[in-house]
Design a protein around this nucleic acid. Structure first.
Lengths: 238, 238
DNA sequence: CATAACCACTTGTGCGGACGAGTTGGCGGA
DNA sequence: TCCGCCAACTCGTCCGCACAAGTGGTTATG
């Protein structure tokens, strides 16, 4: 099944402009092509181009001045932009060589607590290793209650090309609403150490994904080697 | 002469709906009138109504479900604030027994980089250990450029009862605007291990404090033992 | 009785056109 | 030279329309 995925046009316009900003083609301070020019270049209606530009302005990529033009501000930086390791785990597609193990296992205590089920209740576990170049850069384990996993491909050993979030959304219409992350420093488990090829300290991330009602859909446990990962965060002091 | 200033129509629609939500006329969970109904009731084009609804959705007031309707969520809540270890370091007062060392030292490389000064430039260093009960729970080191420290008590070995931030504000009118934190997992240094009484992995926090112009006022390095600290963070998934 | 087709609704996206208003630069007149 | 006006550009808003796509209930059909 190839879900052909056509993002809406206004999103395509946004991505085009974001790419040009990040590639340096549009440098900070530069004036963007005018709406009419973009309409001609991209072959779309003004409504579409304007919606893209207004959204980019709301997100802080550009600034629009009435009567003058639109100007590049740069990639928006704010606390909201912090790297969310758990989100990218849920979002990223899997590849065959990254998947380590998919199995039904009894929930270990800390996972059972996160999922609000009894200890040793059977749950689905997916474990994978992400790589940067040829070094293992993270071990990501996802734990899913059976009620959630039933009817999905989550318990099948094939890689989920579109990522867990999209899969759950497409197959069971489950929507992710918010995620709770707990960060800590710890020693890697024996298995993590083997997969990572090092027993240096890791940044441990325990995350739970919630639906709009607050119910837990799944839990994640990430091991990020300290030497390879830095989580940066900027915040205002009131 | 009061030029009568008419807010744009889409903003009027937004305000109307916001008011109805806050007055309780539209309660959380309720379905809003459909776009067509609003168009008729308010006498505007669908474009206008849709823009208002989409903006309200982006701001979190309502939720829109394709094919079903728009539903009230309530007044949007600003992001739940995460624990900021660096902020509490700057904020908390010191006590005599927590202060480990105050000295002028040449800036080590990573600190020099954070402060944008040359390596080995003399800077003021304050180091202290915080305790919970009788276990050491963190080692906090603050690095201050001489230009900032001059005229303050930062380089004096007496504890700053009101905390660094208040002291700098009171004595030199320096205002903290924002803080950048970088989190990582690492092994404690030998000294940190001694002070903490353990060589288990620590959560390393490197932070820089900036004034409103973005200039760096000071840098901090924190070592938080992994077993004692968890940083929790909740965030929305778009 | 179960199921499929259909219909009436909803929101999502997109188009072209229109007019308003702010900015800029050039052109002509005083 | 200096100043005011105006044309040509910019973005801001608004309209009516069209069609796609998702949802839920009703109705016809096996």
């Amino acid at each position: 099944m190839s879900m052909d995925f056509a993002p809406p046009k206004y999103a395509q316009v946004m991505r085009t402009i974001q790419d040009r900003i990040e590639s340096g083609e549009y440098a900070p301070g530069d004036m963007l092509p005018s709406e009419t020019q973009l309409v001609r270049e991209l072959g779309m209606g003004r409504t579409t181009v304007v919606r893209a530009l207004q959204t980019l302005a709301m997100q802080g990529w550009i600034e629009r001045e009435h009567g003058r033009g639109s100007f590049v501000k740069g990639r928006p930086d704010s606390g909201a932009d912090r790297v969310r390791p758990s989100l990218s785990t849920a979002e990223q597609g899997e590849s065959a060589d990254s998947l380590v193990e998919v199995a039904h296992v009894p929930a270990p205590r800390h996972v059972a607590r996160l999922l609000s089920v009894a200890e040793r209740t059977p749950v689905v576990m997916r474990k994978r290793v992400t790589r940067q170049g040829d070094v293992a850069s993270a071990v990501e384990t996802v734990w899913v209650p059976l009620e959630i996993a039933v009817g999905t491909d989550l318990d099948k050993p094939e890689p989920l090309r579109n990522g867990i979030r999209r899969h759950l959304q497409a197959v069971k219409h489950l929507r992710f609403d918010h995620i709770t992350e707990r960060l800590s420093a710890r020693k890697p488990t024996r298995e993590e150490a083997e997969l990572l090829g090092s027993s240096n300290p890791v940044l441990g991330v325990l995350a739970t994904v919630h639906d709009p009602a607050g119910a837990v859909l799944l839990a994640m446990s990430l091991a990020l080697p300290g030497g390879l990962h830095e989580l940066e965060d900027v915040f205002k002091v009131s």
